[in-house]
Nucleic acid binder design. Structure first.
Length: 193
DNA sequence: GCAGTGATCATA
DNA sequence: ATGATCACTGCC
């Protein structure tokens, strides 16, 4: 099993997130969500994201201004924004862009987990991460493991579950990575080399 | 197609 | 205090 990485894993710094949400959403594809688990740490390849680009984006939580819930989203980039919805599910987001703007990226799928509610349920992610830095000291971070993502592997669609957002519901702000040899596809076909 | 589930926010 | 809404999921 060759584990020879071209570059050593690097933890994404705050500067990574201090860019437009659309850039961050695209760039997060193929990165690894990492969480310590018992003796080992879990690293899941991010394969689906959505960008929410500011208070003017009628799909974005920030559209009603700063509230107790959205304060984190309006805050500095490089922090987790984790909120509870539908009485059951935690949504995992990164805060992006400039401090004072409501922009973020929802992580909708990583590793074998598809769907933002299933992802957080599987990883036991909840409010304890809300407002925390995206850093190793927090206990949940994102790594670049040096795997390039080909442009042709990326699909864009409108965002899910934002029918209330007027014309913003049609914006292609959802990003999906079609895995080639990693993850679900390989597992599903379970081919022998 | 639609029920479940409860925090959040506006309104009062 | 009340009521509508909701960046979802699972079952019909």
């Amino acid at each position: 099993m060759t584990q020879l990485a071209a570059t050593s894993p690097s933890i994404l710094p705050p500067a990574f997130f201090a860019r437009h949400a659309l850039v961050v959403a695209r760039q997060l594809l193929g990165k690894y969500l990492v969480i310590p688990r018992e003796d080992e740490q879990l690293a899941l390849r991010i394969q689906e994201t959505e960008a929410y680009i500011g208070a003017h984006d009628l799909a974005c939580h920030g559209r009603f201004g700063v509230t107790p819930r959205t304060a984190v989203l309006f805050g500095p980039p490089g922090h987790w924004y984790v909120y509870f919805t539908y009485g059951m599910y935690w949504m995992l987001n990164t805060v992006t862009g400039r401090d004072g703007t409501a922009s973020g990226v929802l992580i909708r799928g990583a590793g074998p987990h598809s769907g933002p509610g299933r992802l957080t349920r599987a990883l036991a992610i909840d409010s304890r991460f809300n407002g925390q830095p995206i850093a190793a000291t927090t206990g949940m971070w994102i790594e670049d493991r040096g795997e390039p993502v080909r442009r042709s592997r990326i699909r864009r669609t409108p965002r899910i579950g934002v029918d209330y957002a007027g014309h913003w519901k049609e914006k292609p702000y959802r990003f999906l990575l079609d895995d080639d040899c990693l993850g679900r596809r390989a597992a599903m076909h379970s081919r022998v080399k």
